[in-house]
Amino acid sequence: MSQLQGAEHPTGLYELAILKFVRNRVAVVGLLCLALIVLAVLFADIVTPYDPIERNTPERNLGPSLAHPFGTDKLGRDIMSRVLYGGRVSLQVGFLSIALTTLVSVPLGLIGGFVGGLVDDFIMRVMDLILAFPGLILAIWLVSLLGSNMTNVIFAIAFFSLPTYARLIRGVTLSIREMEYVMAARSMGAGAPRIMFFHVLPGVLGPLIVLTTLGVSGAIVTGASLSFLGLGVSPPTPEWGAMLADGRNYMRTQWWIAVFPGITITLVVLILNIIGDALRDALDPNVRA
């Protein structure tokens, strides 16, 4: 059956989107680079021979060299190792917080948009309330109350991101709800959960993928910002924002401590934004392949 459908509709929205995305060379190269970075971060213990936390006093404050491409810090720790191990924290914060937001906002948006009425009003007013706080300020407030650690950072980012996602999903749901194929499904006796899951959700997926891609890059920056302000993971655990906060004190003499973690964050965020833009173009039916 699915094969038959595939043969009948060789240009479905998502198939076309993949085709368009693959033709975007910059985005494909970006995706490969991102995969490379993620692999290097995951297998940091194989990629780099140095320990990210242990002191190595004889080799302290060394500039970039072949042995230490990003240099070493005041305790003799290899900056590249710390960047790679630190990526575990930063990438986890980025991906997990957005995953959590998506998990909560999808049902909220679907139910709000599909059921409407008081339920919708209630959900949306709560979302408006969260939106009334500038995101980073809310995150700072939450983490300062709950305590500085990775779990709370993830929770705080997920919390303030919620309204953006719930609103988007609700908006798309509202427009899909009125479509003929939903009416057809309803007339055939499909219940609300079935319609939401099988007919509305696939339509929501496109814009959601774009938003989550851009969301992960935003979450990585927010996580690093919190650590930079002293509200993320505590030292000596390496984390990109915390490394920059440390490096700012040595900029006159050891510039590399602040430069390389920053380049890494910017690169990851840049790649995610490029991929997000490409996905948006690919999923937009008005943009031709």
Binding site: L244, G247, V259, G262, T266, N273
Partner: peptide, 22 residues
């Protein structure tokens, strides 16, 4: 635009200090 959009505020601040002040 996409590059400037992606540079985190805290790093840009440090780099501007490094270039223009230091």
């Amino acid at each position: 635009a996409v590059l400037f959009y992606s540079i985190p505020t805290f790093w840009l601040g440090l780099m501007l200090i490094l270039i223009f002040s230091v």
